[in-house]
């Protein structure tokens, strides 16, 4: 599981044979941080990874957090409609699933069209965040809807009789119970956004807007591949996911375990 989560599009891009390359299997002769330094600050037309990294961090955290919070609320809304208006719930979940499972590539043209017409194409907070939401909000809602049934219906009903409206029910009763699932989903969506190569590739193609996976792509080489620089770029892009997983991995597992053990997972 660790491997699948941390695996990167950007990793995959590293392994590519160019016209003239250094031999890959040559064992290192000396320890050097030269490649890291080179990738980090950039050189000539190659954009260094420093700013893409900062940009990536600045957008991934709020996008993931907002996606999962809004996704949880959406999931709760459709879940509550299940009894009273089943069709609302069915249609809602169908759209969510469709949005999650549709290959991102099929949305290339519509997404560019849409962001252009909204005047947010090639913008960071507007276009990029918007595009991320389009992909990861439904995914968050879908994942959270798996965790919602651990909340017993009678608690929701009891809260309603105690005068609670949906907002209070969600925050006071539901949220504490789905917290393990929430953290799981948050970690998962964070990693998904982090490694998303395609979305920034079509929305933010200006060098001044390069996101980390796109910027790392530069070091895979045009005419020649310098394996040490390619792999250094790979290590830099996967640093944050590795740290996240090392420190928060147990919350991820705990959330999944909560599915089996009812609401006792906390």
């Amino acid at each position: 599981m660790v491997i699948t989560i941390v695996r990167h599009d950007s990793w995959r891009l590293q392994i590519k044979h160019g016209a003239a390359s250094a031999p890959i299997l040559l064992p290192p002769t000396q320890f050097s941080t030269e490649a890291y330094y080179f990738d980090w600050v950039g050189f000539g037309t190659l954009i260094g990874l420093e700013f893409p990294m900062i940009r990536q961090l600045l957008i991934t955290v709020p996008v993931a957090l907002a996606s999962v919070i809004l996704g949880s609320m959406g999931a709760y809304f459709f879940y509550m409609q299940m009894e009273r208006r089943p069709w609302v719930s069915n249609v809602g979940f169908s759209i969510i699933s469709l949005a999650t499972f549709l290959p991102a590539q099929t949305l290339t043209v519509p997404l560019i069209e849409l962001t252009s017409s909204l005047g947010i194409y090639q913008t960071y907070w507007g276009g990029l965040a918007f595009a991320y939401f389009i992909f990861y909000l439904p995914m968050s809602a879908l994942l959270m809807s798996i965790f919602l049934p651990v909340v017993p219906n009678y608690l929701i009903e009891s809260a309603r009789l105690d005068g609670a409206r949906d907002w209070s029910i969600f925050w006071h009763v539901i949220f504490p119970l789905i917290l393990p699932g929430f953290l799981s989903t948050l970690i998962f969506v964070f990693l998904m956004v982090w490694q998303d190569f395609f979305t920034p590739l079509i929305i933010a193609t200006r060098p001044s807007l390069y996101m980390l996976p796109v910027a790392a792509r530069q070091y895979v080489g045009g005419y020649a591949i310098l394996y040490n620089r390619s792999f250094a770029a790979g290590v830099i892009t996967s640093l944050v996911p590795l740290i996240v997983f090392a420190f928060l991995g147990r919350y991820f597992i705990r959330g999944l375990a909560a599915l089996g053990g009812g609401a006792k997972g906390v």
Partner: peptide, 22 residues
């Protein structure tokens, strides 16, 4: 009139106490 506005109190068979944070 929605349940939250009826001011009806119900004690459920399993008591339905709010766990685990309250």
């Amino acid at each position: 009139v929605e349940p939250e506005r009826r001011n009806v109190a119900m004690v459920f068979q399993n008591w339905a106490l709010y766990p685990p944070n309250m």
